[in-house]
Design a protein around this nucleic acid. Structure first.
Lengths: 226, 226
DNA sequence: GCAATTCTTTACGGGATCTTTACGCCGGCC
DNA sequence: GGCCGGCGTAAAGATCCCGTAAAGAATTGC
């Protein structure tokens, strides 16, 4: 049975989430603050967490960071409309998606399904097809024209980071914090160097990349054959 | 039930609005001046507010600013034709759309519907359909005739800014401050240059734009197929 | 302890993007 | 008709960003 952890201080919204998610057959665990959230996440091992950013004891982003230290579970953030900045920081901290208040049931459930599906296929569907190359992120193996290609640890992490958001843009900051840690968020050259390495090893024509695409001024995006 | 707050001093117009909106099934709350309007907005929590700019006690723009401090509810402004300048200032203050007196029932109801629809789906409706083109703002991807179209960072921000107020006018100042920052609020050239770029990339006939519409002297408006 | 691998750092050329400038068009106004 | 403000269009200039290569530093494995 799919368990969802809800970390939210406002009772009304908690009730709303409980009934909406419960009606869909999810088991719901509720925490009224960040401290309880951190504990419940460890004890109940939920399949997904919904976290409000504005919590009474400490910030939701901090909670996300704590969870991310030991678990890759999908985390969906709740935020008020004005908190554009916090929203970005939450995603950088390791959240997978966000919903802006006020939100409808339909949107909520849709995003939850997406996040769960995303998590579900991430262990299994880890075999990326990039033209003549293919990469199995789980087994940490890559081939190109049926010949084994060797990727270094950082190259795997970078590729995994891009694969987690397949088809979507991942910001430079996001990549840097996830691969090198928050203290290296400014070293954008790293990305250029390693993106080139990955292209040289995986792309058919590294000069005109089809799969490892750069979004100038923003970040990078991974495309794959499906 | 959908509640609409009407802040208007002239009794005739108030009666007209009450009957027109009431006939459509909306619950109408009326305030004869700005002070009452501010209170009623807080106590009744309406889904939308219609605000006259010329109010007896203090200016409608000030009321809009007050509401905007705590609520993102859609606000539609009523203005006399001569108040061109005030109209722009009202939009800059946080209003979402305006209707010029005298106006017909049809136009009023249409704009109310647009504003309400916008408020309901604003967080989710990230996939814009513009004729042959479509844009996914979240994934930062745009296509036209099933072919990928590349948008630059500023083009995306500008389009996102317009999409946030889909179907409604966004002032030049608003666009400039949100995309380039408050210090560039006077560089209206930028808008012309980038609006052309967006039209060239997205519109079927860039010379006769159907979706990226200019409101001369005020700003721009984004329309989309539904 | 040494060699191989991997990571970090530096330097530079080219390209994408943004900014600026110039000009033509249209509609309102005198 | 002539002037003027606002807009669209085009293109050149400036700036920033990215790719590329290669050398130095750190790490790993033997």
């Amino acid at each position: 049975m799919t368990t969802i952890l809800v970390v939210e201080d406002e009772p009304e919204i908690r009730r709303f989430l409980r009934s909406s998610l419960g009606a869909e057959g999810y088991r719901v665990v509720e925490s009224p603050n960040a401290r309880r959230g951190a504990i419940d996440a460890g004890t109940h091992k939920p399949d997904l967490a919904i976290v409000d950013l504005a919590l009474p004891d400490f910030d939701g982003r901090e909670l996300i960071r704590q969870i991310r230290e030991w678990s890759p579970m999908p985390i969906v953030v709740l935020s008020a409309r004005s908190q554009e900045r916090s929203k970005i920081e939450a995603l950088d901290a390791g959240a997978d998606d966000y919903i802006t208040k006020p939100f409808g049931v339909g949107e909520l459930l849709a995003r939850v399904r997406v996040a769960l599906r995303h998590a579900a296929r991430s262990p299994s569907g880890t075999v990326l097809k990039l033209g003549a190359a293919s990469v199995d992120l789980e087994k940490r193996r890559a081939t190109r024209d049926a010949r084994e290609v060797h990727l270094t640890p950082i190259e795997f992490r970078l590729l995994g980071c891009l694969a987690k958001h397949l088809g979507m843009v991942v910001t430079q900051r996001q990549l840097l914090t996830e691969v090198w840690g928050p203290s290296h968020a400014a070293h954008t050259h790293y990305l250029r160097v390693y993106m080139k390495q990955l292209r040289d090893k995986l792309e058919d024509d590294p000069v005109q990349p089809r799969y490892l695409v750069t979004e100038t001024g923003v970040g990078y995006r991974l495309l794959a054959d499906d």
